[in-house]
């Protein structure tokens, strides 16, 4: 039996941790939906949608949102196209210099994003990839691939080879085995990698900032621009819109796959 003080202490710790993580979110929501809120007030004096209306009137929100989603979708497809075979090879074959290979894939996430972004911008200016959706998506692949590879390598390493053998004995040739057995077994990991990739792109700011242009403003960049123009509440409103898919995916992911499986790759198998 735990003693009462121990229970209280634990409850207090958990509560403060949750507040610590969620408080910035709460502030953004208050900013976006509140008015007459400055000085010493704890809560806004009135609630309003005016900042959203204002945002919609001054900015082409639809285009910005579509830019963001389009780039995120492209990033997801490109990341999976590269990460699936790479992860399969890393997980299932004996490769020379395997650790160096993994290190190279993780590299963009290990260095400061701004440093990496400067290098990318240099290249993109040279080959005219700035202000293109595909260019930004390509840059985002660098950020998404490390997570995707970690999750997928762990997924593929965890595949039960006995199930693959069972499928083969029962008559599956290599192609059918992949579609009927391997893919369904690996699907949770693949979905997780896709969601991570989408969000890595959707949420990215620093890298996008270095390579975006007038036609490729994304929601995070627009938030920053509105902030620069001094419209804190408009930035809050855009941020709130920005939050929706992230929260939606988070919930979907928690429902669909056991979060501990996702962390498998980070725990290091």
């Amino acid at each position: 039996m735990r003693t009462l003080p121990a229970k209280l202490l634990r409850a207090a710790l958990v509560t403060s941790f949750v507040l610590f993580i969620t408080l910035p979110l709460v502030m953004i929501l208050l900013e976006a939906f509140g008015a007459d809120w400055f000085g010493m007030r704890m809560l806004p004096a009135q609630w309003t949608l005016r900042w959203f209306v204002w945002a919609a009137q001054t900015i082409d929100l639809g285009a910005v949102a579509w830019n963001t989603v389009e780039i995120a979708l492209m990033t997801t497809v490109l990341t999976l196209a590269a990460a699936l075979p790479a992860s399969w090879a890393i997980a299932r074959y004996r490769l020379p210099l395997k650790s160096i290979l993994i290190g190279a894939i993780l590299f963009p996430r290990m260095i400061p994003e701004i440093t990496f972004a400067l290098g990318v911008a240099r290249i993109f200016y040279a080959i005219h990839l700035t202000n293109t959706a595909i260019g930004i998506a390509l840059a985002h692949v660098m950020l998404a691939a490390p997570f995707a590879v970690l999750v997928l390598v762990s997924t593929f390493e965890g595949l039960d080879t006995r199930l693959l053998e069972a499928g083969t004995v029962m008559g599956c040739g290599p192609l059918r085995l992949f579609w009927r057995v391997t893919l369904p077994l690996a699907l949770p990991g693949i979905v997780a990698a896709a969601l991570f990739s989408f969000l890595a792109s959707y949420n990215d700011f620093v890298l996008t900032l270095m390579v975006y242009g007038a036609d490729t403003v994304t929601l995070p960049v627009q938030t920053y621009l509105s902030l620069g123009n001094g419209y804190l509440s408009v930035a809050g409103a855009i941020s709130t819109i920005l939050l929706v898919p992230s929260l939606f995916f988070l919930l979907a992911m928690l429902r669909m796959v056991n979060p501990e499986n996702l962390l498998g790759g980070l725990k290091g198998a």
Binding site: D160, R162, E165, G167, T168, V169, M170, G171, L185, L187
Partner: peptide, 18 residues
């Protein structure tokens, strides 16, 4: 293997979880 028409029972059962 897949063309030999063998049947196999595994120690680990090897049932498809999905």
């Amino acid at each position: 293997t897949y063309r030999r028409n063998m049947g196999m029972v595994f120690q680990s059962f090897a049932l498809f979880p999905h």
